[in-house]
Computed example of a mutant assay.
Amino acid sequence: MNIRPLEKRDLPHIYRQKNSRSVMALWFEEPYNSFDELTLLYDRHVLDQTERRFVIEKDGEFAGVVELMEINTIHRHAEIQIIIDSKFQGHGLAQAGMRAGIEYGFNVLNLHKIYLYVDVDNAAAVHIYKKIGFEEEGCLKHHFFAEGKYHDSYMMGLFADDFRQPTSTEPKVD
């Protein structure tokens, strides 16, 4: 597994993900963006210093995206998000991709805390996040609307001092 910065050539893959209702429901976002809209968003955000987007590759193939969002350099925290393409799910890429994104946030951006939101009913994701070291900090009731209903969401956080540094066999950020 490898991660690299998101580039314009990756937009067709992002377009496919952004137009999947089930995928966007996991991110509590509205699906169905036009390719033109996605291109405009990319152009507008490519230089935004409050975001870092990385492509997760497996054997040179697009496998997903890990993003650090809302990067706050004063308080030194950011939100992290991940999507693994369905073709690559169940191969450990979510955990490896999260670890690589977290390592970048703590070791390159000098963040103090990385947090995320996850649907309380997404047991697989909650399990992965806890395995990495995230802790539940609270439950937000009816906080996100997706798939026609409101969802409760855990807010989970991880501090730099608590992050278990990857071993030499785990992927590094290029």
Rank of each mutant, 00 (worst) to 15 (best):
N2L: 14
P5M: 09
E7Q: 15
D10I: 00
H13A: 00
Q17I: 03
S20V: 05
R21I: 04
R21E: 15
E30R: 08
E30I: 12
Y32P: 03
N33T: 07
D36P: 01
D36F: 11
L40T: 06
R44P: 13
R44Y: 13
H45T: 05
L47Q: 07
Q49W: 04
T50Y: 08
T50N: 12
F54H: 06
V55Q: 03
I56R: 10
E61L: 07
E61T: 12
V65Y: 00
E67L: 01
L68E: 12
M69S: 10
I71G: 14
I71M: 07
T73V: 15
T73P: 15
R76H: 00
H77W: 13
H77N: 06
E79M: 05
Q81W: 03
D85C: 05
K87P: 15
F88Y: 11
F88N: 05
F88V: 03
G90W: 10
G92I: 14
Q95V: 03
G101Q: 04
G105T: 08
N107S: 12
H112W: 06
I114W: 05
L116V: 05
N122A: 00
A123G: 01
A124C: 03
F134E: 00
C139Y: 06
L140Q: 15
H142Q: 15
E147K: 12
G148A: 03
G148R: 01
F159H: 00
F163Q: 08
S168Y: 02
E170I: 11
E170G: 12
E170F: 06
D174N: 15
